[in-house]
Design a protein around this nucleic acid. Structure first.
Lengths: 194, 194
DNA sequence: TGATATAATGTCATGATTGACAGGTTAGAT
DNA sequence: ATCTAACCTGTCAATCATGACATTATATCA
């Protein structure tokens, strides 16, 4: 939730200009009853920035170091979790599709590792679904799978940001994750601003 | 029921501001005897948000008539959907666990019909999971299944509000649903208007 | 090219609301 | 019964909205 002044700083313009954008309907916002202050929801502001090819401040893009691991094999899940935790990421594990779905919505992770082969879940469909979701179209998806080369290629066309064939080294995993969302250690505690 | 602090977070303002709104009669609330804490009824708060064209958080939309149908068999899903739609409910269908999870979080339904036997999803686990979730512990769960009597009993202990053995009549379905969350037709459509 | 019109943005002053802080109290949890 | 987190009140500084006007950028036309 942002005020006009904060939004103005992010854009490098005068707050008067932000108000005018709002008045013209370019930027979505609502008014408070008292003085008529504007409040801009962070997601609307980010959408606005993206629409106009403006740089998006990292602290507005959710919490950068949160990873959701969608994986039903306990050992594999534990291994990924351990590796990422050690590197400083905030890791959640979902061992079935339902829980994965709720966690995606609830925790709004920066990255999801997705096992394509989970019982009762079509990984490709999940990929498509995530990409269709307004709110989560920005989340990075790293497909982790023992699929064939064709399957992995198909995953890429379905919206995966990167793929990691099983088996893999921890270093490979970390390299891919950090390439997609940066290092696990938060740059500063201010990233947690609400 | 909300405190000033909670309302403040929803609006993106300081709690002091919320108190001022209350003092000026813009927002309805009442005081507790002790410290003079304010308590705001959810419906009053939602009405306030609507009056001022402010976004209404989905989890506050109290008595809605939204139903989420978790069912992987297309014919069965269509049948339930049709029946409930006709009765005036707002129906969403999820055909796998992942989508079901996201929809539960996104649409905040008043009731979920849950097929216990879905591939890759342990219905009992889902039940437990829903009950553990802070935000959604209020949602009613109607288990719809061809399970054995023991299985259905177990579902009840896992947190199901009611069970409906397959096969069933439409009238049975409607009876159970309306018993759990009331009739499908909103009491008055104007309640939802701006 | 150069001149003019139009739109967008920045600046300033005023008035009102909101946020921050400090000190005291209690609701809710254990 | 105790403890912590959250709440209330009052005050004052910071912030925001508004309107008027200056300045800059863009478009249009001769």
């Amino acid at each position: 939730m942002l005020t006009t002044g904060e939004a103005a700083k992010y854009c490098g313009v005068n707050f008067r200009t932000v108000i005018r954008w709002i008045e013209r309907g370019r930027l979505k916002a609502y008014k408070l009853p008292g003085r008529g202050d504007h409040r801009i929801q962070t997601q609307d502001f980010v959408a606005f920035l993206r629409d106009n090819n403006m740089p998006v401040p990292p602290e507005l893009v959710g919490t950068n170091n949160r990873v959701l691991v969608i994986e039903d094999q306990p050992e594999m899940a534990a291994a990924i979790r351990r590796t990422l935790k050690r590197a400083g990421y905030d890791v959640e594990v979902a061992k079935d599709g339902f829980i994965a779905g709720t966690m995606l919505m609830r925790h709004n992770p920066a990255l999801v590792t997705l096992d394509l082969k989970m019982p009762g879940m079509d990984g490709y469909q999940v990929l498509n679904f995530i990409r269709e979701q307004e709110d989560h179209s920005q989340v990075k998806v790293l497909v982790v799978s023992a699929e064939t080369r064709e399957g992995l290629a198909r995953a890429k066309t379905s919206g995966a940001d990167d793929i990691l064939p099983k088996p893999f080294d921890n270093s490979e995993l970390l390299a891919k994750v950090s390439q997609l969302i940066g290092d696990g250690q938060p740059v500063s505690a201010q990233d947690q601003l609400v």
